[in-house]
Design a protein around this nucleic acid. Structure first.
Lengths: 242, 242
DNA sequence: CGCAAACTTGATGGCCGTCAAGCAAAGTGG
DNA sequence: CCACTTTGCTTGACGGCCATCAAGTTTGCG
């Protein structure tokens, strides 16, 4: 049942990735009232402090969570790729404490909070899956705190590329050693606490050493072991099962 | 009932801080098998990757969560003060992805995971309170990501001091405009991604401008509005009710 | 084809790290 | 009670990583 490519099955597979869902829960997911929208690149999906009564599922494309400082600078908090559930925490909060925006043109499914709440009340396995999502998000936040606090530009960039590669691989979106890479250099900069000028120079340095190459909206990892070593990367925090 | 100073009542008050607990839930909390320990300063409580079958409640003193890089440098992820529940996420994970250590000598209560699980299964208000704790932790992580990524040393320091002051105030541990400040300059450094040398200079700068003074294990906020402005601080992420 | 957005590269400077030394405070043992 | 050690704080000199400013160049799109 979870073999088709429908949005429902993407969601069911994700929620059942750690512990298999009972058939009844899977059927309940298939009955969710999804509202599916295609959203252009660089559009806001969710506003900090705004109302929210739906959660969303990324079906296609990349999005990010961010916060703005009062002087207008931006800090990206997390990227989301297909399969991710970026704002599950909204189930427990009146309004989000961050903004969410598309990076690329994206296809997003919206699900009413009320339906997700009944789902998680009725099926403990699903409540458990929601906890798991929250825990992975928090662990990723912690990994970013370490990067931002204690790594230099090369290490930060390497670490982010490792993370994105493994997350994309987990949903089958890598191809050999390469992956789609829609992030602009300013996106890297806003995620890593750098300027786009310095991201540019750092990428050049990684390329010149034959570690990773970004070309034509794709990124190819030429030497995974070197990249891992530069980043001091440990994938455990992503809690990927395979 | 929640007026006495017992560990049970501290816990009951914390879990009921957003939504009042039913009397039965409060009674169940009073029946939890707490193991209370006093732990010296700078001792590990929890090891990254180690086993864990208890959650803890900070009854007195300060602790922190941290991660170590392979070269031995440390990044602090979060501080905990009395009333905090630092490792609730352990309920959903076999082993923690961070270490926890005392900052000062601390009194800590340990509660078996199994008891907390039955508590949260039986009382939805408590399950809700656990979610709330997780959400505040994640929101604090995000605030730190923004600080680490986009603020300079003065702003970072000001932001952390604002956070700690409000959290201590919420549990009645401030005194006028001052609070206990057991953090060493190396602790500030490890939390803010700086060196202790630079923390020293930055503290001096904040003091010379009459904004905040650290003296004798206490910190006095001389000009809250200036401190808030330097930090661009918005307390919303702490979700303090009063 | 023309405009806008993104990328690239150079020059310059500042924030903060590193190294080093001295000082202060607190605990320890004789 | 006082050398002695340890830990933390303070200050100076110097240098490097990265920000800033300022062009160009390339890419993408209508």
């Amino acid at each position: 049942m979870a073999s088709s490519k429908s949005p429902f099955c993407l969601l069911a597979r994700r929620l059942g990735s750690a512990a298999p869902l009972p058939v009844a829960a899977e059927r309940a997911i298939l009955g969710l009232p999804l509202i599916i929208r295609t959203i252009e690149a660089s559009r806001d999906i969710l506003y900090e402090g705004g109302p929210s009564d739906h959660c969303c599922v990324i079906l296609d494309g990349w999005t990010c969570c961010y916060q703005l400082l009062t002087d207008g600078r931006r800090q990206i908090l997390l990227f989301h790729v297909p399969g991710d559930l970026p704002d599950l925490q909204g189930l427990h909060l009146p309004s989000p404490d961050f903004g969410m925006a598309t990076v690329t043109r994206s296809i997003v499914a919206f699900v009413p909070h009320s339906d997700l709440r009944t789902l998680s009340d009725r099926y403990p396995t699903i409540a458990q899956a929601f906890w798991r999502e929250a825990i992975v998000t928090a662990a990723t936040h912690r990994a970013w705190i370490v990067s931002l606090g204690r790594r230099d530009a090369r290490q930060k960039l390497a670490h982010l590329i490792c993370e994105l590669y493994l997350r994309l691989e987990a949903v089958g979106l890598t191809d050999g050693r390469s992956m789609p890479m829609p992030l602009r250099q300013t996106d890297f900069a806003d995620a890593l606490g750098l300027t786009s000028v310095h991201v540019n120079r750092t990428l050049r340095s990684l390329r010149s050493q034959g570690i990773v190459d970004l070309y034509g909206r794709r990124s190819t990892i030429l030497d995974w072991e070197a990249l891992r070593a530069v980043a001091d990367f440990n994938p455990k925090y992503l809690h990927l099962t395979d």
